[in-house]
């Protein structure tokens, strides 16, 4: 039996309290549980491994520092982490944009790098470009719905908006996606209207 097996049934909040009480195994348990999801969220928003790792480390550092004041009934640790990562990514993206604008470069091409990696997968590229062209919050809501398979109430909790606002974001996002993809039916495997 591993020394931290006794945390198997404990929720993240309880493990965080154990960390704050000085348990040396609690940090490893929480990191193993949360790191994959935190990293993938950061990577999806930043599309850069080094930046995603920095944000992941930064988010955990904030979690460790808040641990002594954590109240188990205030929120789920995963939801709290999601918000922290989102804010860190937004800050980082904003700084990148400002620095690139300062250098007189063109606006960021959010698909840069993806085309190279997936150059033979036209469908993926088309969807990727369409998703990247969406406003951030619409893309975030759609991703949470279709990848993380969260219910609207959970999405609302993570994004700190109402359920109605989530429904509106997803609805508008899908309309925009359809519109963006209309001109790329061949890449998506649909027949062209005029073929």
């Amino acid at each position: 039996m591993m020394p931290f097996d006794h945390y198997n049934d404990a929720d993240d909040g309880a493990v965080l309290v154990a960390f704050a009480n000085g348990d040396p195994f609690a940090a490893r348990v929480l990191t193993k549980r949360l790191m994959p999801r935190v990293f993938s969220q950061a990577y999806r928003m930043l599309r850069n491994q080094a930046d995603a790792e920095d944000v992941t480390q930064d988010a955990f550092m904030r979690l460790w520092s808040i641990a002594p004041d954590w109240k188990q009934d205030q929120a789920q640790v995963s939801t709290w982490m999601y918000r922290v990562v989102r804010n860190l990514c937004i800050d980082r993206t904003r700084k990148h944009r400002e620095s690139e604008l300062d250098e007189g470069l063109d606006a960021i091409d959010p698909t840069q790098g993806i085309d190279q990696k997936l150059q033979d997968q036209h469908r993926t590229v088309a969807l990727s470009q369409a998703l990247d062209a969406l406003p951030d919050r619409q893309r975030e809501a759609i991703t949470l719905r279709h990848l993380d398979e969260l219910a609207n109430a959970e999405i609302a909790d993570r994004m700190e908006i109402s359920v109605e606002a989530v429904e509106s974001l997803i609805s508008r996002g899908k309309r925009a996606l359809k519109s963006l993809l209309q001109g790329r039916k061949q890449e998506l495997g649909y027949e062209d209207d005029t073929a």
Binding site: A20, G22, A27, R28, M35, Q57, W64
Partner: peptide
Amino acid sequence: LMARILADAEAYQPRP
């Protein structure tokens, strides 16, 4: 990355 995160945790963990 895991090692970096755990090193931070050790530095931040309150001591009894």
